[in-house]
Design a protein around this nucleic acid. Sequence first.
DNA 1: GTGGGTGCAAAGGATTTGCACCTCC
DNA 2: GGAGGTGCAAATCCTTTGCACCCAC
Lengths: 151, 151
Amino acid sequence: MSYGAARYEQIVAKLEAAGHRITPQRLCIVEALLASDRHPSAEEIFAQVRLISPTTSLATIYKTLDTLKSLGEVLEVESWDNRTHFDGLRPSPHPHIVCTGCGRIDDIDLQGVSALQSEAERVSGFKVDEQRLEFYGRCLKCQETTAANMA
Amino acid sequence: MSYGAARYEQIVAKLEAAGHRITPQRLCIVEALLASDRHPSAEEIFAQVRLISPTTSLATIYKTLDTLKSLGEVLEVESWDNRTHFDGLRPSPHPHIVCTGCGRIDDIDLQGVSALQSEAERVSGFKVDEQRLEFYGRCLKCQETTAANMA
DNA sequence: GTGGGTGCAAAGGATTTGCACCTCC
DNA sequence: GGAGGTGCAAATCCTTTGCACCCAC
């Protein structure tokens, strides 16, 4: 977790700076949040945390994620499964692409995004301060699987 | 409801063509769905339908919206309020812009969308077949309100 | 006549909340 | 020591489901 390590420190520092206590549960949750780039759900973070801290409750997961959200250190991503997924690695809004086959969620960087947002503001007269850009489709692996099944 | 009238006939025809029965409840729901371009929630459609057909249940609303969804005649839009909103006027995927002040949801047409989707496919290797593009901000009216409050 | 549709009530599932206890600072 | 955090259980909220009755075709 080389990329994650710096990010981990960053989040912990932000918690402290905001006057929040550093508890073992929170450290565990932050670690679980950063452990994968697949954007875990609360339930997945819970399962991960439980391995190390077996008494932690799901309520605490949600409360901590809420705290991190309000600090701007975590981003919510809507997935395909009616569950909220969380992105702690890249907390600023950015597009995601969700595989409807295997459920993986990838970050993507798109040049066109800021232009699109400006266009949205111009067309609507709104002042935009948040965006949710999600694409749904099949990842490379799942495209192969489908192709194989069809053969 | 000049625009709505044609669309209304179109949806009813689609229901019939698919072998679904035309019931007074369904007609009422379709009408309520098209009555506003503000993308009603199930609850809002329910309230509207109740005015004319007071025994209709919320379950029927959901079932009918499900049917229309499966016929491709209605689009789901995620709003700010954790409720699903419905777009029966323009059932093909398109961007929306949600006002975080008053909750209104507007359709917008953006030139850049298809380019963005191509870019997403190129960058990720995914085959995209659905998109959700939503901007959140303040509509003109709510910008004024905020400005007034600050003065 | 009959199979799909309706309406009630109850279930479902993700998320939240209340509250007594605990622990980090 | 005390405010903030935790964990349990219960509550909430939107949405779905089961099932007996009904009505559009």
